[in-house]
């Protein structure tokens, strides 16, 4: 189904973002959600994201999972920051007056599936032959407007050096969840990306409240998020489980009142299934 067809079915209008000919933009599946953690956990490459969340995190999430376009429901319009990011990332943004339920119903009846085939991306790992590359990014705690920028930069770097797109996607999802945890729960933090021919490593160090019970925090659905965090589309207790699911190896240590350290590893070369 093309974006033009979706626009017609939903009587949607373009509100900005990436300028692409909608008749040539192919959409393979759809995901409707206001919780970005669920989109990160269940979203697929090539899909269209339907959401009522209109801040920049909607576009960051779409970019990270490889969604092709975003449709805002209930006549909602993205803010300026969101529009600027979508232009930068080449993601078209639309708005429809329909509610989520109806928008999903219409697209479903037109044959758009809820779950697309995992993207058949080609391996491009032969571009990696340089020495270890290391980059560090500051993360400002409690600053939601900048949140996600380190992760999108990580994704851009990995794309530039030609890492397997399926690995990039997993790294980007884990990076974004980890970055959001720093933004939500810490005063400041740092994310370090390191790439060797065999391994991508993400290390996060933050100064913040720490996690009293890591076992509990690893459970899906367990969350200490405030209502504000939930309204941002995060804090549904999916963050750490999402990181673990996407990583080949994951280590976490934390000290209450001091901060939390994450080390997340992704193997290159021996490809694993995109989705466990």
């Amino acid at each position: 189904m093309t974006l033009l067809e979706i626009q017609t079915f939903l009587q949607a209008e373009f509100v900005g973002g990436g300028r692409r000919n909608p008749a040539e933009v192919e959409i393979v599946s759809a995901c409707g959600s206001d919780l970005m953690s669920d989109v990160l956990a269940f979203g697929r490459q090539g899909e269209i994201l339907l959401t009522g969340l209109t801040n920049a995190q909607s576009v960051r999430t779409a970019d990270i999972i490889g969604a092709v376009a975003v449709v805002y429901i209930r006549g909602k319009r993205p803010d300026e920051e969101c529009l600027a990011l979508a232009r930068e990332k080449g993601i078209p943004l639309l708005t429809t007056r329909k509610m989520m339920y109806e928008a999903c119903g219409i697209l479903y009846s037109r044959g758009l599936p809820g779950v697309g085939d995992p993207a058949e991306a080609e391996t491009a790992a032969d571009g990696v032959e340089a020495d270890a590359l290391t980059r560090s990014f500051e993360i400002a705690g409690r600053n939601f407007s900048r949140a996600g920028s380190a992760s999108t930069t990580v994704k851009d770097i990995l794309e530039d050096i030609g890492i397997d797109p399926l690995v990039i996607r997993r790294v980007a999802i884990a990076a974004y969840e980890a970055e959001m945890n720093v933004v939500m729960y810490a005063d400041r933090g740092e994310m370090t990306l390191s790439v060797t021919p065999a391994l991508v490593t993400l290390s996060l160090r933050d100064e913040g409240q720490g996690i009293p019970d890591i076992g509990l925090a690893m459970q899906e659905g367990y969350s200490t998020a405030t209502p504000e965090m939930r309204e941002m589309g995060f804090g549904a207790g999916m963050g750490l489980p999402n990181i673990k699911k996407n990583a080949d190896r994951f280590e976490i240590t934390s000290e209450v009142g001091r901060g939390t350290n994450l080390d997340i590893y992704f193997h290159l070369g021996n490809r694993r299934e995109n989705r466990a």
Binding site: A30, C31, G32, S33, F42, L50, M100, Y101, E102, C104, G105, I106, L107, Y108, S109, G114, V115
Partner: peptide, 10 residues
């Protein structure tokens, strides 16, 4: 998913 359940019900 939300999409599929909404789709069938709608």
């Amino acid at each position: 998913s939300e999409f599929a359940i909404s789709g069938v019900l709608y």
